[in-house]
Design a binder for these strands. Structure first.
Lengths: 245, 245
DNA sequence: CGACGTGTTGATCTCTCTCAATTAGAGTGG
DNA sequence: CCACTCTAATTGAGAGAGATCAACACGTCG
């Protein structure tokens, strides 16, 4: 219906999408099939679904997840505007992951074989895809480090910092007045491998200490330094210290 | 020195590498710089190193990992012959991961920009790279599900099954006499977000129950069904049950 | 108004961690 | 051949972070 052409995509001004030639934009446009909008808390891709098309998240928040047969759920990553969805879906000998929305969301839909067409017709775009895929993986790597080796406090501090960064990068003012934060505590718990109750208690503890504040689906960072210290994160570049012991 | 040409690469007969044309093989050969061999328990890529070249693991086992500044380590994935190393390294705003060998290992070394050359000169190969990268991520996804939501017993069962599958796929007899298993219990612990002691106790419990057996760096599966039940894994395709509650 | 989803808090319970000690093998040097 | 050292595996005991159970508060909505 009221679909935006790729050439006027609101995501184009973002740093990530700089440098696309008009031809490349036209190519993407030609592969795009349609757009879909979904309300919050709906399923875009069902777990185990194998024939899902390729999506791009144009607006809103979503997340990828896997569940065990008894219902335990692990959120694998959160998806923000500009993220790719479904590259991993292809040819899974292991069952794939599901994708649900966190907010009302709008997706661009591409045919499954667009991935190949993109590679074939534009090596540059193809290269970008691998880069994006690799980058996606590095997000999961970070989460795995958290879930595997950080305490609850540290995990939450890490999540807040990383999500804040990503959300702030999407808005011009870089988040001075806070950034959108549509996750419920259940989502945080499922993203960090914690129970809902313990997530709540830890979140409250950090908030009471004045490290952050969450209200009306917005996240405010009150003491990034303290959070970063907790998270054992140093913006860019790790300090030159090696394991001390 | 005694380097094998790509056309005679021992990995070529594997299903993953079928279907490469002679031209594609020649292209890879032209981008290959050299080979390196490393003894067991050595570092191929240091954590935080940003200028690492691209590698292919030709023979042996290795693993990717991240550590916190106090020494806590999380193994992100295990690498077997045929695996790609270093695609994620590029342009990391977060510090990258390290790569260590588990056994004596042999790597093929490619220039950093080979990734781009490959895309430019052969869309097919470029497409394969994204596919491989996406597949790598799905391995990490699986581990994240384990570490986030499975109990110690379940995690170990899952790891044994998945590693057995991968190792068996690399040998003609499909692992009837067991497969190589060069991990120490510390590696298992670091790969599953467990402590060494608890890993040992859980491993022994499963072994005493007759589910598996590890000896002389080899893994024998004694009761795959029981392990799969524990792991909540069903070979291919998830049973049609939805979360029950 | 009752039902529901989300957040909050207190009280147990338990899985897993940490600490400590021992065993077994491989390698080294005398 | 035998101390000596190192690494990996093993086992017991006690401690603790986080899970589970149970209530309750609050806002939204049909």
């Amino acid at each position: 219906m009221d679909e935006t052409p790729c050439s006027a995509c609101p995501l184009r001004p973002l740093p990530l999408f700089q440098g696309h030639t008009p031809e490349e934009t036209a190519l993407v446009q030609s592969l795009k099939r349609r757009e879909v909008t979904l309300p919050a808390n709906e399923t875009l891709i069902h777990e185990g679904q194998t024939d899902a098309p390729l999506y791009t998240l144009r607006e809103g928040w979503a997340f990828r997840y896997k569940t065990l047969s008894d219902g335990r759920r692990q959120i694998l990553s959160f998806l923000l505007a500009g993220d790719f969805i479904g590259v991993q879906q292809k040819m899974a000998d292991a069952a794939a992951h599901g994708v649900d929305t966190l907010t009302d969301a709008r997706f661009c839909v591409f045919q499954r074989d667009s991935l190949w067409e993109l590679h074939r017709q534009s090596p540059t775009m193809g290269f970008n895809i691998t880069w994006l895929t690799a980058h996606e993986e590095s997000l999961v790597d970070d989460t795995l480090l958290s879930v595997g080796r950080r305490s609850a406090e540290e995990r939450i501090a890490t999540l807040l910092i990383l999500l804040f960064k990503r959300a702030a990068a999407l808005q011009p003012d870089a988040g001075v007045g806070g950034v959108p934060f549509p996750l419920t505590q259940q989502h945080i718990a499922d993203g960090l491998g914690l129970s809902l109750v313990h997530t709540n208690k830890t979140l409250r503890k950090l908030e009471r200490r004045g490290l952050h504040h969450i209200a009306d689906a917005r996240l405010f960072m009150r003491d990034v330094r303290a959070l970063a210290r907790l998270a054992d994160l140093w913006g860019d570049g790790r300090p030159p210290q090696r394991p001390l012991i």
